[in-house]
Design a protein around this nucleic acid. Structure first.
Length: 894
RNA sequence: AGGGAGUUAGCUCAGUUGGUAGAGCGCCACCCUUACAAGGUGGAUGUCGCAGGUUCGAAUCCUGUACUCCCUACCA
C-alpha cells in the first residue's frame, strides 16, 4: 500500500482494473441454491448489435444500484443479462450493409444465406454492448447471459405458440394490418407513429349512373379510389337521402359502385360523401364488413399498385396519386383542392408512410389474457412505481386489441406452423418438424414463412431466461423477479405482455415491482436523435468523467419517472465530487501512517473517554446519513439517498470533520489522536461502503487502500444503523449540539470577515459574550478550534461587555447563545459594517412583524397547535433581544 | 377527441399529515490557508403559472383557468 496518491483521481485506469478483478473473483455470481434471500432482476435485453446509449446507461445504473445494494445487504442478488435479436432493426441494418458492400438484396441472396449473414453480423458485434455495459460497472451474472434466439428461448417460444394455438388464442386471419412497404411486412399498432402533416383534401366528382349529375366525395388519398367499392352518405343527410341505393360511376376505372348509407359519415365534414375503400382504410374496412362490400386490394407488398389498378399498375403510391389527380383534372372531375392537416401513420423503424394492407396474418387474442393481468395490478400484487403508471396500464388493458404477431421478415423465430400442401390444414408443433399433416396425414408440409414479432419472445423473457419450459432451480429461486426497471416507452410493448405471459404460463407475476424511469433527453428537453445531432455517447462521457460520475449524476437527479434532462456540466460536478472523496482519502491516509490497526478490524470501537467532541459529532452525523440512505433506498427514493451521501461527505465530513482533526494531527501522539485515527478510518470505510452502489469504482479503489477493511467493498456489508449500533452510538446528540454552536460561531466570524472584506491573512481578536455556563464551557473548550478555523489571534470569553466600533453577531443553536464581537477599529470602513448590521436588523424587523401579527391574532392563538404557538413566542422573544443588541451596536458606530 | 403528468431561484429539481420557501449547479466578491483551484470562504436571487374558495394560517386542500409535455385514438 502506498500513501502517495495522485492529487487527482484517475477513473480510467481504476475502472478497467477494478472491473476485471471483480469479474474474475466471481463477485457477480448468484447461486441457484442459497440460504440467502433471493433478489433478482432481469435486464431488459438491448439490441444485440446495438450501441449502449444514454437511456441504457440510466436504466442500468438504477438496476446496478439495486443489485449492489441488495448484494451488500445479504441477498442472493442475481442480475441476468441478455440481448435481443431485434428482428426489424437488425435485419434492416444488415440489409443496408449488404447493399452497400456487396450490392445485393436479401432476396437475391435467399433466406438461408441471408440469415447466415445476420448471424455473422451478430457474432461480430454481439459483444460490443456487453463490453460497454462493463465500462458502466454493470455487475451482471455474465454466465447467465441469454440471447433471444438461443435454443432454450426458442423452445419456450415454440411451446407458448403451440399452447396458445391449441387454445384458439393464436389464430390466423385475413385482416387489414399496418403495412410497412420498405420492410414488406406487417407491423403492430404500437409500431406506428402518427405525425401531423400538411396534406390536401381533394374533392372529386363521381358521376351518377343515371346521368343526373355528380356526387362529390372528399379524400386525402385520391389514388385509393381505384379500390373503391362504394360511396357512403349519412342516412339522415337530406341532400343525399334520395340517392341511397343508386349507383355512381367510379372515375378512371368506369365501374359501377353503390351509394350506401352509414351513420359513420359526418354530415358536416367535406362534402358529406365518403368514398369507401375497404381494403386500404381501417374505417372503410369496418364499413365494408358491415355492408358486405367487395374488398379490392390495389397494392403489391412493395407498395406499388397491382393489376387491380388497371392503367396505374406498377406505379408507386405517390406517383399514382399524381397521375390520378392529373387524369381527374383532364376529365374535369377534380372540383376542389384544399389544404388539410391530417395525421398520418409512419413506420417507427423506417419512417415510411404506413399503408393499411389486407393480408393473411397471425394474431393473438388478448381479451382473456388481460383479465388476470388487470387483476394483479388492481389488487396491488404487482406494483408500478411511480404509481401513476398503474392507470395508464389499466386503461390500455381495458381497450386491448388482438395483437398481430407475424412479421414478413427472415430474422427471428420462424413460426412453428406447417401448412399442408395437400389439404391446407395447419399443423403446429412444440418441437421439431412434424412428419405428417395432423389432418390428412400428408407428408407434403411447408413451414410458415413468417417470423414472430420480436416482442413475442421478449414477452417470455422473465422465465424463458431461467430455463422454462424445463423445471429449473433458477426459476424456483428467482421467479418472480424482484424488480423490472425500464422506461415508460415500452410499458405496452413489453411490460404488459410479460405480465400476460407470466400469469398464463408460470401462473405468477413476472416481477413484483415495475420501476419506471423517464427517458433521457438533452439539456433543453429535446429527444436525443442522430438528425438533431444532440445525442450523447455514454462511453465518451465515461472516458471523460468516469463511470462513477455518470452514475451519480443519474442517481442524484431521478425525479419520479419524469424525463431526465442530461447535462454535461452536471457530470463535471460529480466528477469533482469523486475527486473530493479521493482527496479526503489522501488526507486521511497521510494521517493514518502511524495508525495501529486494531485486531478486530471493522469491529473495532474507540474508547469513549478518548473521543473528542468532533469524533462524537461525526459519528452522530454518520448515523443520521446512514439512516436517511437506508430509508430512501427502501422507499425507492434513490436521488434522496445520493444527495444525502453527497451532502454528508462534502459538507460535513470534508468541510468540517477533517478541518477539526487537523490541529490534533499536527500535535504529538496521544490516546485522543489514536481515537480520532480510528474514527477517521471507520468513517471513511463506511462512507465508501455507503457510496458503493452509487459509485462502485472509486469506492472499491479507496476501500482497498484503507487500513481497516475486509476482502472487498462490493461484498462487504452495506452500512446500516441496526448492524453497527455500537460504533454509531459512540456519537452523541449532545456532542453534535456542541459542535453545531462552534460551527455557528466560526461561520459568524467568517461572515463578518467576508462582508467587511477583511483579508484572510489578518488574524482577528474575538470577544465572545456568553451568559450561560454551558455555552461558556463549550466555547472555552473549543478555543483552539476557533482560532485555527476562523483564523483568530485570540479569543476572550466574557459575560458581558461593551463593544464600541465592533462587529456584533448574535449566534444561537437550540438553548445555547453566544454574542460574537470583533473590534473593527482601524481595519475597515465602518460603512460596510453598518450596512451589514442594518441588513440584519431589517430582516429581524420583518420577522418580528410577522410573528407579532400572528401572536396578536386571537384566532391563531386559540386554534393553532400549542407547540406552534410556543415556538413562535420563543422565536419572537429571541428576535427582540437580538434586535436590541444590534441597534445598540449600530449606535456605537455613530 | 380521450387519458396522464407538469408549472417553485438564471438552469435542473426537492418541498412527506397545511405552520415565516430549500438543495445542487450557475452567478458575484475575496482567497494558491501544508487533502483537494476538479479547491476554500462569504454573498445575492423567488407575487411558488393565474383567479377564486376553505382556514387563524395555503407552494401544500378544493374549484375554475392558462400554458407546456407525454400517451392513446383519429374525419374521409
Amino acid at each position: 500500500m502506498s500513501n502517495t496518491l495522485s492529487d487527482r483521481y484517475n477513473p480510467q485506469e481504476v475502472e478497467t482494473r477494478t472491473y476485471a478483478w471483480w469479474e474474475s473473483s466471481g463477485y457477480f455470481k448468484a447461486h441457484d441454491l442459497s440460504t440467502k434471500p433471493p433478489f433478482s432482476i432481469i435486464l431488459p435485453p438491448p439490441n444485440v448489435t446495438g450501441f449502449l446509449h444514454l437511456g441504457h446507461a440510466l436504466d442500468h445504473t438504477i438496476q446496478d444500484l439495486l443489485i449492489r445494494w441488495k448484494r451488500m445487504s445479504g441477498f442472493n442478488a442475481m442480475w441476468l443479462p441478455g440481448t435481443d435479436h431485434a428482428g426489424i432493426a437488425t435485419q434492416s441494418v444488415v440489409e443496408k450493409e449488404l447493399k452497400k458492400n456487396e450490392g445485393v438484396t436479401r432476396h437475391q441472396l435467399g433466406r438461408n444465406a441471408f440469415v447466415e449473414k445476420v448471424w455473422d453480423w451478430k457474432h461480430q458485434y454481439g459483444d460490443r454492448i456487453y463490453s460497454q455495459m462493463k465500462k458502466l460497472g454493470d455487475s451482471c451474472d455474465w454466465e447467465r447471459s441469454t440471447f433471444t434466439l438461443d435454443e432454450g428461448v426458442s423452445q419456450a417460444v415454440r411451446k407458448v405458440f403451440a399452447n396458445l394455438h391449441k387454445k384458439g388464442w393464436i389464430y390466423r386471419g385475413q385482416r387489414l394490418v399496418n403495412w410497412s412497404t420498405p420492410l414488406e411486412s406487417a407491423i403492430s399498432d404500437l409500431e406506428v407513429e402518427h405525425q401531423q402533416i400538411k396534406g390536401t383534401l381533394f374533392h372529386i366528382d363521381y358521376p351518377l349512373e343515371n346521368g343526373s349529375g355528380n356526387l362529390t366525395v372528399a379524400t386525402t388519398r385520391p389514388e385509393t379510389l381505384l379500390g373503391d367499392t362504394a360511396v357512403c352518405v349519412n342516412p339522415e343527410d337530406e341532400r343525399y337521402k334520395h340517392l341511397i341505393g343508386q349507383n355512381v360511376i367510379l372515375p378512371l376505372l368506369n365501374k359501377k359502385i353503390k351509394i350506401i348509407a352509414d351513420t359513420y359519415v359526418d354530415i358536416q365534414f367535406g362534402s358529406g360523401v365518403v368514398k369507401i375503400t375497404p381494403a386500404h382504410d381501417f374505417n372503410d374496412y369496418k364499413i365494408g364488413k358491415t355492408h358486405h362490400l367487395e374488398f379490392i386490394n390495389i397494392l403489391e407488398k412493395n407498395g406499388t399498385l397491382n393489376e387491380n389498378a388497371g392503367p396505374y399498375k406498377g406505379l408507386k403510391v405517390q406517383e399514382a396519386r399524381k397521375r390520378v389527380i392529373e387524369d381527374l383534372k383532364n376529365l374535369n372531375l377534380l372540383v376542389k383542392e384544399e389544404p388539410h392537416m391530417q395525421s398520418v401513420g409512419h413506420c417507427s423503424r423506417t419512417g415510411a408512410v404506413v399503408e393499411p394492407f389486407l393480408s393473411e396474418q397471425w394474431f393473438m387474442k388478448m381479451d382473456k389474457l388481460a383479465i388476470p393481468a388487470r387483476r394483479v395490478v388492481e389488487s396491488g400484487t404487482l406494483r408500478f412505481e411511480p404509481e401513476s403508471w398503474t392507470k395508464v396500464y389499466l386503461h390500455w388493458m381495458n381497450i386491448i386489441e388482438d395483437w398481430c404477431i407475424s412479421r414478413q421478415l427472415w430474422w427471428g423465430h420462424q413460426i412453428p406452423a406447417w401448412h399442408c400442401q395437400k389439404c391446407a390444414h395447419i399443423t403446429v408443433t412444440e418441437s421439431g418438424v412434424p412428419q405428417n399433416c395432423s389432418q390428412c396425414g400428408s407428408t407434403d408440409l411447408k413451414q410458415d414463412e413468417d417470423v414472430l414479432d420480436t416482442w413475442f419472445s421478449s414477452a417470455l423473457w422473465p422465465f424463458s431466461t431461467m430455463g422454462w419450459p424445463k423445471d429449473t432451480e433458477t426459476q424456483k429461486t428467482f421467479y418472480p423477479t424482484s424488480y423490472l426497471v425500464t422506461g415508460h416507452d415500452i410499458i405496452f410493448f413489453w411490460v404488459a405482455r410479460m405480465i400476460l405471459m407470466g400469469l398464463e404460463f408460470k401462473g405468477d407475476i413476472p416481477f413484483r415491482t415495475v420501476y419506471i424511469h423517464g427517458l433521457v433527453r438533452d439539456s433543453q428537453g429535446r429527444k436525443m436523435s442522430k438528425s438533431l445531432g444532440n445525442s450523447v455517447d455514454p462511453v465518451e462521457m465515461i472516458d471523460k468523467y468516469g463511470a462513477d460520475a455518470l452514475r451519480f449524476s443519474f442517481l442524484a437527479h431521478l425525479n419520479n419517472g419524469k424525463d431526465f434532462k442530461f447535462s454535461e456540466q452536471r457530470l463535471e460536478g460529480y466528477r469533482n465530487f469523486m475527486n473530493k472523496v479521493w482527496n479526503a482519502t489522501r488526507f486521511s491516509l497521510s494521517h493514518l501512517h502511524d495508525f495501529k490497526v486494531p485486531a478486530n478490524g471493522t469491529q473495532a470501537l474507540p474508547k469513549k473517554s478518548d473521543l473528542s467532541v468532533y469524533d462524537k459529532w461525526i459519528l452522530s452525523a454518520l448515523k443520521d446519513v446512514e439512516k436517511k440512505v437506508e430509508e430512501s433506498l427502501e422507499a425507492e427514493r434513490f436521488s434522496d439517498a445520493a444527495q444525502a451521501i453527497y451532502h454528508f461527505v462534502w459538507y460535513q465530513f470534508c468541510d468540517w470533520y477533517i478541518e477539526f482533526t487537523k490541529p490534533l494531527f499536527q500535535g504529538p501522539p496521544s490516546p485522543e489522536r489514536e481515537a480520532t485515527q480510528l474514527v477517521l478510518a471507520q468513517v471513511l470505510n463506511r462512507i465508501v461502503r455507503l457510496m458503493h452502489p452509487f459509485s462502485p469504482f472509486i469506492s472499491e479503489e479507496i476501500y482497498q487502500k484503507l487500513p481497516i477493511r475486509n476482502e472487498a467493498c462490493i461484498i462487504d456489508q452495506y452500512p446500516t444503523v441496526a448492524k453497527d449500533y455500537e460504533l454509531l452510538e459512540c456519537g452523541s446528540e449532545e456532542a453534535a449540539k456542541e459542535v453545531e454552536i462552534v460551527k455557528e460561531v466560526i461561520t459568524a466570524i467568517r461572515n463578518i470577515r467576508g462582508e467587511n472584506r477583511i483579508s484572510p491573512a489578518i488574524q482577528l481578536p474575538v470577544k465572545l459574550i456568553i451568559q450561560d455556563d454551558k455555552s461558556q464551557k463549550i466555547l472555552s473548550e473549543n478555543k483552539s478550534t476557533l482560532i485555527s478555523l476562523a483564523r483568530l489571534s485570540d479569543v476572550s470569553i466574557e459575560t458581558e461587555g461593551h463593544f464600541a466600533k465592533c462587529a456584533v453577531t448574535p449566534v444561537q443553536f437550540k438553548d445555547l447563545q453566544v454574542k460574537v464581537v470583533i473590534p473593527l477599529e482601524g481595519l475597515v470602513d465602518f460603512n460596510e459594517e453598518i450596512k451589514r448590521i442594518q441588513k440584519t436588523i431589517e430582516k429581524l424587523n420583518k420577522d418580528i412583524f410577522g410573528l407579532n401579527s400572528r401572536l396578536t391574532n386571537e384566532k391563531f392563538v386559540k386554534n393553532a397547535d400549542e407547540d406552534v404557538v410556543a415556538l413562535d413566542r420563543e422565536l419572537l422573544e429571541k428576535s427582540k433581544v437580538q434586535l436590541t443588541q444590534l441597534q445598540e451596536a449600530l449606535v456605537r458606530f455613530q
